[in-house]
Amino acid sequence: MNTTSLSPQDNPRRGSLACVGLGMTLGSHLTPLARSHIEQADVVFAALSDGIVELWLKRMHPDVRSLQPYYAEGKSRMKTYREWVELMMTEVRAGKRVCGVFYGHPGIFAWSPRNAIETARAEGFDAHMEPGISAEDCLYADVGIDPGRFGCQHFEASQLLFYERRIDNTGYLVLWQVGLVGDWSLTRFRTGPACRQLLVDVLSQDYPLDHEVIIYRGATLPIEQPRIRRIALRDLPEAVLTPEETVVLPPASPLKPNLAMRAQLEELDKAGAIV
């Protein structure tokens, strides 16, 4: 087999960007293709959830640069995320093959990968996103939820406070980053019970206060088990919540049949017009 056509070596070097997901659990979730992006890069940037996972990544490449030092208390995370984009783009513009490695999925709840890819493409560079196993994927497996059964809404928790959103309590409701709910300053890494009480006030319009709330955290290290706690909605403000935990509300009402639409479908069926 002639492998020369597979090699980019003959082409003039041009910078490129691949943002890949590492998955959630060390050793378990990294896809072969994401690993290949890491190993073939000239420089690797890392935004991971665990220092030990970062050590593992450093075994895969000699030049792994952690993005963690760009966070700071009192500094807007928006500024941090823009710095991440610029760090990656500086190397891309210098002709390097750059790989940005993000825990979970790089396109989910992650501002920088999406914006770095858009920037790179706008400047004429090749840029690619490689999916990873996300916290959402792990949640479905560990908690035993099938989003297809009753439907499933996902919100970044603060959206329910900042905006008037319509919650459908006949399906599952998954709330992300509840530990930070209500922070619009972008400078905090945690908010307190008063903010979560506001969230409960919003949710109590659609759920009884004794409704079950599931607090979930997936395993980061393969010697850990998923953590699943169940409390009443009214107890959410005082619950100890870490930034990486996710809150799930199971359905509170049965699905309501749409009789009018069913009748119309029946008419179509009788008329042989379904297909």
Partner: peptide, 8 residues
């Protein structure tokens, strides 16, 4: 480690 990658 900080785990927030999104501006909220």
């Amino acid at each position: 480690m900080k785990v927030d990658h999104n501006p909220h």
